[in-house]
Design a protein around this nucleic acid. Structure first.
Lengths: 257, 257
DNA sequence: GGAATAGTGTCTGTAAGACATTATCGT
DNA sequence: ACGATAATGTCTTACAGACACTATTCC
């Protein structure tokens, strides 16, 4: 047999240098709500936070980093990220998306390591449970603006920056806002969530745009009780507000039409 | 020293199973133009094509596949893809974007191999040069619809499907149409390019929308000669058409405003 | 004149954007 | 009554969508 012809019997991956590891790292976002100090009913103060863990081992021992871990041969990258999410944040079944690979030579002192970055959007309540469980001084929710100013391990600040800009983009072009909201919510809540993620967002006639314009009507629909009567909520206000829910519809955007 | 404490001196990556390779695979799209058979001036027939190579080695020997190759320790994934683009298609300096990783266990018979998928958008002319160079029976431009029906190596049909849907989305939400057009182009050319990539696209008042609506005006601008006179082209028509060029502006889309 | 592409006129209904106003109801 | 949030009225200008029409020039 011609030794130059490669086939199953003589294929040998180890003649090439191979990566030393392919972890996934996860940017876990949540929105915290705190009641306004005034006793009266009022909209809560919301803040976008990111979950960080303090490293216990070399490299970057003691520094804060994104949760993550090495992928195994028996799982896909997405499954790996799901496992890490469960192990490190104690949550399952949340919205998670892959967004980039980080592969710059030298990015990890342990060797040739390709990080696969995901972002996850989690309800505050799921994380709160976990944080009570282990009295973890090594797991923290940090406001994103603060996290961006911290000196994070590896290239995790770059990853966080990219994740944030991806989430902001998706917040405006898809219905991921639903991931931070209960099944049924008021228009103000939705507006607040969008503004929490995208501070520049401002839309004075928000309620009309989303409820009565032809092209957008259908993104959300009024919640009704079993008698078909509109469901209202006065959680945040004296005057009860209509509750809405997201539908499965999301418009296809285009700069040309 | 506590042997349970990992640090630079005792860190040993080889105690874990590591990937057998991290290639990049590239979906190279181009749009071919063929003159209509009628002798008269007319818009060409355009078709979206993808570059495939025929594999010479195990596995999938003889089958068609996306161009690609293994990443080296000294380069980033993007640099790897650039190198492959140069080596396999003979092109440099084209628009290329990373879009996904393919990591399902068993996807590659050679072992645990993570494919990093890019798409590239190339002018037909750059590829034509190359295809003449090597009388390559092993490199082919294939119409996308045909390629999707072929039995490609590995999970390359899935990769191609994903690339196509990504490019279609970006064709409508960004100005990547420019990658398939000369510096200066007519409105019909632009419209044709969009339709070639996104067959469903239809916009009866296209010219007015893109030239005279407040929110979109600024995506393209009229080309002018050095005397400030509008530049025209009669390449495709009896009546000369205004030439346009893309600006750096691309509107921020949102489903909420 | 016909064929092919380029581009405008015109009309109707709907939406955008800006602000003022009213509604509800616990405290 | 006031404060806070919810929601509607009103007005102007702009855009969407449809379709008929004119313009240019080679054949």
């Amino acid at each position: 047999m011609d030794p130059n012809i490669e086939n199953e019997s003589n294929y040998n991956p180890s003649k090439y240098r191979t990566p030393d590891g392919a972890p996934s790292d996860i940017v876990i976002f949540t929105i915290t709500s705190t009641e306004k100090s005034t006793a009266k009913k009022a909209l809560p103060i919301r803040e976008l936070q990111v979950l960080l863990i303090q490293r216990k081992k070399w490299p970057f021992e003691g520094q804060w980093a994104l949760p993550g871990g090495f992928c195994r041969e028996t799982e896909s990258m997405y499954e790996c990220a799901q496992r890490e999410l469960r192990e490190e944040a104690g949550v399952t079944d949340v919205h998670m998306e892959y967004f980039n690979v980080y592969s710059k030579p030298g990015r990890d002192p342990r060797g040739w390591i390709l990080s696969h970055a995901f972002f996850a959007l989690v309800h505050e309540q799921w994380l709160l449970k976990r944080r009570a469980d282990d009295d973890a001084a090594d797991v923290r929710l940090v406001p994103v603006e603060e996290a961006l100013r911290m000196e994070l391990a590896f290239d995790h600040r770059e990853i966080l920056t990219d994740a944030l800009s991806k989430v902001r983009e998706k917040m405006l072009t898809t219905t991921i806002a639903r991931e931070f909201l209960p099944e049924e919510f008021t228009i103000s809540e939705l507006y607040q969530v969008i503004q929490t993620v995208v501070p520049d967002f401002e839309e004075r006639n928000f309620i009309r745009k989303i409820t009565s314009t032809q092209s957008r009507k259908g993104i959300i629909e009024e919640a009704k009780d079993r008698h078909g009567e509109p469901k209202l909520s006065n959680r945040y206000s004296q005057r009860a507000a209509q509750l809405y829910r997201f539908t499965d519809f999301s418009p296809q955007l285009s700069i040309y039409s």
